[in-house]
């Protein structure tokens, strides 16, 4: 997955001012930056949901996208939602069922599949949203703020799932403002500057991740670590 010189403007205001980044197969990339820096816009563009004004987006294989807000159809069960995603993508019914069962096992939501979104917790609904992307067997998975709104147990469980997916060779790009949670699942962190967003630094965190997370938090201007923010 490669993005080169991506430019996006909204009503004359430049949100992305030439963003370039790259992720190799099986790599997990975290994208961090101040609020409104254009992180979500960047993901939506890579997912093909939104257009851009200049630059290049090159993705090999299918892209799965998990948006910031959990959007499930409330009149369908979790199973129904996931199978609808597979149906739209043209996956044969039997194969879709197999992928559904496999993904649900991985995410630990088998017992909730026949429930409707309104009947399950936010964490389970979030996982169902991820399953909707996984059932398409993507080569690249894009996750926008996957930890937001989840309790501690759900965050830990989701981190385990994302780590398992990475081990399966899935390329992931994860946008999150919860750096402390993010560093546990990604290999490198990309730091974006505020509008217009540009890549300010790329940090390999496969070494001492907690020290780097503190440094980044301070660099973001929020001084999270200095304030003893529990997310770190």
């Amino acid at each position: 997955m490669r993005v080169e010189g991506l430019v996006k403007t909204y009503g004359g205001e430049t949100v992305l001012g030439g963003v370039s980044l790259e992720a190799s197969r099986g790599e997990a990339l975290g994208v961090v930056g101040p609020n409104g820096a254009g992180k979500s816009t960047l993901l939506r563009i890579i997912a093909g949901v939104e257009g851009y004004d200049a630059g290049r987006v090159e993705v090999r294989g299918r892209v799965g996208f998990v948006p910031q807000e959990t959007i499930l159809l409330p009149w369908r069960s979790l199973r129904g939602n996931v199978l609808l995603a597979a149906r739209i993508a043209g996956v044969p019914r039997r194969e879709a069922e197999e992928r559904l069962e496999d993904g649900a096992r991985l995410l630990g939501i088998e017992e909730y599949l026949n429930m409707r979104p309104g009947e399950v917790s936010g964490g389970t609904a979030r996982k169902a949203q991820i399953l909707m992307a996984l059932v398409l067997r993507p080569e690249v998975l894009l996750l926008d703020e996957p930890f937001t709104g989840l309790d501690v147990a759900s965050v830990a469980s989701l981190q385990e799932t994302l780590t398992a997916l990475r081990r399966r060779g899935l390329t992931m790009i994860v946008v999150s403002h919860m750096i402390g949670e993010l560093v546990r699942v990604v290999d490198r962190l990309v730091l974006l500057s505020h509008k217009p967003a540009r890549v300010r630094g790329v940090y390999d965190i496969r070494g001492d991740s907690s020290a780097l997370a503190r440094m980044l938090a301070e660099e973001l201007g929020g001084g999270l670590a200095a304030r003893g923010d529990p997310r770190l």
Partner: peptide, 27 residues
């Protein structure tokens, strides 16, 4: 806007968008 976004993420056609996302949502 919510359901259209989901439909677009899943790559639904205009007809699929209406049949699976919009009309049931109006029920």
């Amino acid at each position: 806007w919510r359901f259209r976004l989901l439909a677009r993420i899943l790559g639904a056609s205009r007809v699929q968008e209406l049949v699976y996302f919009i009309l049931p949502g109006t029920l």
